[in-house]
């Protein structure tokens, strides 16, 4: 068994690590987003480091609202950037511009939230923004985590 094989993960381990369902993983393989994943002698899927890297890329691109078709093209570009067709290069350049726009928006939002939090820290009357965030988080956090959180008196 090679070191790569030894590190390979079962479908259950991948779902746990990446938060993708087993059905999604099998679907990606079926439509060719993932090349055929290696199998054990008994036919169980084993995901290697390269598969995991592709899956992380897919997850990130989906978070950016890229379509599966676009992600497929980007993955082909990722595999072989030097020989990519002009159409794929153009798509990738467009997506890069989209990521950069999104980064600029996120950066502005980060600075805005940082400023608001600093204002709260400096004010006498408490902090409506921090309290609002805590209330929103309490609705989504597990109970144990909520108990550890800072509570208002």
């Amino acid at each position: 068994m090679s070191a790569e094989d030894a590190r390979a993960m079962s479908i259950g381990e991948v779902t746990e690590r990446l938060g993708l369902s087993a059905d999604t993983l099998r679907y990606y393989e079926k439509i060719g987003l993932l090349p055929r994943v290696g199998r054990t002698a008994s036919g169980l899927r084993r995901y290697g480091a390269r598969d995991l890297s592709r899956l992380r890329f897919i997850r990130r691109a989906q978070a950016m609202n890229f379509t599966l078709a676009e992600i497929g093209a980007l993955l082909r570009f990722r595999e072989d950037p030097v020989r990519a067709r002009p159409r794929v290069r153009k798509l990738t350049a467009g997506k890069l511009a989209e990521v950069e726009r999104r980064l600029a928006e996120l950066s502005h939002l980060r600075d805005e939230l940082r400023l608001l939090l600093n204002l709260c820290a400096a004010s006498r009357e408490g902090c409506p923004v921090i309290e609002g965030i805590e209330e929103a988080e309490e609705g989504t956090r597990p109970r144990a985590a909520t108990r550890r959180g800072r509570r208002r008196p």
Partner: peptide, 17 residues
């Protein structure tokens, strides 16, 4: 008022008052 001019404040690099 930084809250009234939040966008401009952020663009100028204001991080606190």
């Amino acid at each position: 008022d930084v809250v009234a001019e939040l966008d401009r404040a952020v663009a100028l690099g204001v991080r606190a008052t």
